[in-house]
Structure formats: C-alpha cells, structure tokens
C-alpha cells in the first residue's frame, strides 16, 4: 500500500517533468541555433570595426551602439536593395498569387478534366531546388544559349534582352514565379476543397453562374488561404537571394553583388565587416518580423 502512495507521488512529479523532457532536445537546439545566433549578431552589431590608418595592424572593435545602424540607413546600396525587393514584391506577389488562384479555381471548376495531371504538373517545380531552377533558367535566358530567343529570332525576328537594366529584375521574378506558383496554388486549391458542396449547390439552384460563384463564394471562402500565401510570399521577397545570386554571373553586370538586402549583407561578410553584416541582418529580420506581426494583428489570427 505504501508503495502505491509513493508511486502516486512520484508519478505526479514525473507527469510534470515529462513534457519538458520530451521538449528538451528540440528546445536546447532551438536555443543554440535560433536564439543564440540572433543575440550574438545583435551584440556584435553594437560594435564597429576600426582599421588603423595604414591598414597594417589588425582592425580592432570598439563599442558604438548606433554607428552600424546609422550606416545601414545611409548606405545607398543597401537602401536601394530594400527598395528593389519592395518593387519586386509589389509586382511579383500579386501576379504569382493571381495565377495561383486562377489555376486553383479552374482545377476546382466542373469544366476541368484531368485534374490529377494538371495538379501534378503545376506542383512539379516545387520539387526543383530554387538554385537548380535558377541554373536552368540561366540557360534559357543566356544570350548565347537561350532557346527562347532562338525560337523568337527565327519565328518573329526579335529577341528579348533578359538581362537589360530594365528587364533583369523581372527575369528574376519569372524564376521565382515559376518555382512557387504551384505551391501557392496547392494551398488555395486545398482550401477550395473544404467549401461545403451544399453551399455551392444552393448558389447554383439560385441561378448563379460559375464565374459568379467563384467570385462571390469561393474567393471569399478561401480568403484566409490567400492572405496566408500573401504573407509568406512577402517574406519570401524580402529574403530574395538564391535566384539573383545564381543569375548574377551571366547577367553582364545588371545584377550587382548588393542587388537584394541579403546579398548586400553577404557582401559585407565577404568584406569581413562582420559587425556591419550583423547590423544589416538584424535590420532585415526586424523589418520582416514587424511586417509579419502587423499582418497577424490586422487579420486577427495571431498565435494562440
């Protein structure tokens, strides 16, 4: 009998401890690989690198909490890169999500045949790593090898300058669109599948056309999915890196080494100015974090 009481007491302690034991491996690594680096980067960003006049002695660090941040916002290249991804996001995200929504609605419509095939085909690019997709598109763009321009030249007598100053950003945007439209389509399509069939039947009995049903019932019903894909796409634009980096060598200078904020931060790392790189990534992380937070407050679906 005493044994049972003892067991009961220890079981309660165990109960209390169990979830934390289950969480321990994850939380330990999470702290080490997510929290620690951010804290470390933040601390490092408060120092500045002092090089001696001749650059012969090793540079020294001195505490100057605002210097790097002041420099971030007066760094023309960094500010330009922020502006560039802003323009990029403002144009590319609506186009990509519009396309994703259109395909999802068409696949969900009664007129579609061969749904399985089309769904699979649009989702296939998701299985291609973005770097490999960019390498692939680099051949499709390259002035030397482009089969697209080869075809256009022969058929219509003109070519597209994919890496001109004006077009380069949109050539990058096309790669991103190619990679992610199917993924977003799938999320919206999955949401469409959960609309109760009776609701659509009722609308049809009332004489609503397919377009009308799509516009007045389906789209409002999948609004959460659309908002969600929008946020993730905006975050994706802010961290644009892989595609422009891969396309840079063949872009003939149109894509610079500070083309996007992350590329600029990486350029600071390459220049061994770690405190400044830290400040740049902190600024970027904060901007993205604030954007996500504002979004979740505005749409009222915060964490719970």
């Amino acid at each position: 009998m005493t044994a049972i009481t003892a067991n009961g007491a220890s079981a309660r302690t165990l109960r209390w401890r169990t979830p934390w034991l289950f969480l321990l491996p994850f939380l330990a690594l999470f702290a080490a690989m997510y929290v620690a680096p951010i804290v470390f980067a933040f601390v490092q960003s408060l120092f500045t690198l002092q090089r001696s006049g001749l650059g012969l002695a090793a540079p020294t660090l001195s505490f100057d909490p605002f210097a790097n941040y002041a420099r971030v916002f007066s760094d023309d290249e960094f500010v330009a890169s922020l502006g560039r991804v802003l323009v990029f996001g403002a144009v590319q995200v609506p186009i990509m999500l519009g396309l994703a929504l259109l395909i999802a609605l068409l696949l969900d419509s009664k007129s579609a045949r061969g749904r399985g095939f089309f769904r699979l085909a649009s989702f296939l690019p998701f299985a291609v790593p973005t770097v490999v997709a960019a390498v692939m598109w680099s051949f499709l763009y390259s002035p030397v090898t482009s089969p697209i321009n080869g075809f256009l030249e022969q058929a219509f007598g003109f070519t597209i300058p994919f890496f001109s100053e004006e077009l380069a950003l949109w050539s990058v945007a096309n790669v991103v669109t190619w990679c992610w439209t199917g993924y977003n389509m799938f999320i919206i399509y999955s949401a469409l599948q959960t609309i109760p069939g009776e609701m659509l039947e009722a609308a049809k009995l009332d004489g609503a056309s397919a377009t009308r049903i799509a516009w007045s019932i389906k789209i409002p019903m999948v609004r959460p999915a659309i908002i969600l894909t929008t946020v993730f796409s905006i975050i994706g634009s802010a961290q644009l890196f892989n595609e422009p980096t891969v396309l840079k060598p063949i872009s003939g200078g149109a894509i610079t080494s500070t083309y996007t904020p992350l590329m600029a931060a990486q350029a600071s790392v390459a220049a061994q100015n770690y405190p400044y790189a830290a400040a740049q990534s902190v600024v970027l992380a904060v901007l993205v974090g604030v954007a996500s937070f504002v979004f979740f407050k505005v749409t009222g679906r915060g964490e719970r």
Binding site: L23, L27, F30, M33, Y34, A36, P37, I38, F40, A41, Q44, I235, G236, Q239, F241, L262, A265, Q266, V269, Y274, A277, A278, Q280, S281, L284, A285, V288, G289, S292, F296, E303
Partner: peptide, 23 residues
C-alpha cells in the same frame, strides 16, 4: 513554447543564416 515556435516558423530560416555564420 508554442508561440515561440510559431514565431520561428514566421521568420524565415534564411534570416538566421548570417548570424549563424558569425557565431
């Protein structure tokens, strides 16, 4: 705990990469 994990999902991994390099 769950809130922190959700927040980490929202901030893309790529944002942690430069700090990881520095560390």
């Amino acid at each position: 705990v769950f809130g922190a994990i959700l927040a980490a999902v929202l901030i893309p991994k790529i944002m942690f990469t430069l700090p990881l390099f520095l560390m």
